[in-house]
Design a protein around this nucleic acid. Structure first.
Lengths: 109, 109
DNA sequence: TCTTCATGCTATGAAATCCGTAGCAATGTG
DNA sequence: CACATTGCTACGGATTTCATAGCATGAAGA
């Protein structure tokens, strides 16, 4: 299937609503993780493979989608978040705190 | 593979850090979407299949993971978010605004 | 110039996952 | 006893992911 793109059909939705395209894009394997791993300094391709614990083919597929979406870019320093990507990451940061509270809950139910 | 669980190995991470388990869980097909579709009233199984634009087998797999994680529960009214699930959804809501701004950017670059 | 290295990325085949459809079991209603 | 509604499972083909090997390019040494 084509890359998720606001205004286009995506898996599970033909409405073209931007949130549906975003949920499809972020719902693919390693997409959230890749963005997460780029929260600090840019990483080169191989370091990103290691950091995300994935393999070149999946990473490259996700990178092309995330680059086309304007979330990630390749600079001289390696792969990093664009300005837009950083605002998306900022929106994801609460998930970290949520996950910690979740772990605490599940340890003593 | 076993369901993502804080403290356990998940795809792409053996650290057991809660955020990794969460990113694995949410990075599976339709997981984010299912949570999103339950932002309002509970839905029964079939309505949730339609709302998420998926099929019973994938939905059931995701539901069992999300129920085990304590994010979704089945009540007399149907499938709905738990209290914890609602806080997770609240953390996801900014994505909607982000997606709208994203769509606007991509329309006129 | 001839290695050697680091880089982004592609190729390949097997394994896992997803998808769509059909249908089952339990429960309730006429 | 039909009949509808519900949650869910079975199945087979399509797609995606996984792990590993390797290619192409450019820079840096020898």
């Amino acid at each position: 299937m084509k890359n998720p793109f606001p205004g286009a059909r995506v898996r599970g939705s033909s409405s073209g609503r931007p949130i549906m395209a975003l949920l499809d894009l972020l719902g693919r394997r390693m997409a959230l993780r890749i963005i997460w791993e780029l929260r600090g300094d840019p990483l080169n391709f191989r370091d990103l493979v290691d950091a995300a614990g994935t393999n070149p083919s999946v990473l490259n597929t996700r990178l092309s989608e995330l680059r086309e979406a304007g979330i990630i870019e390749l600079s001289e320093d390696g792969y990093g978040l664009t300005a837009e990507g950083r605002t998306l990451l900022a929106d994801m940061m609460p998930l970290n705190a949520w996950a910690d509270a979740w772990a605490k809950r599940l340890r003593k139910p």
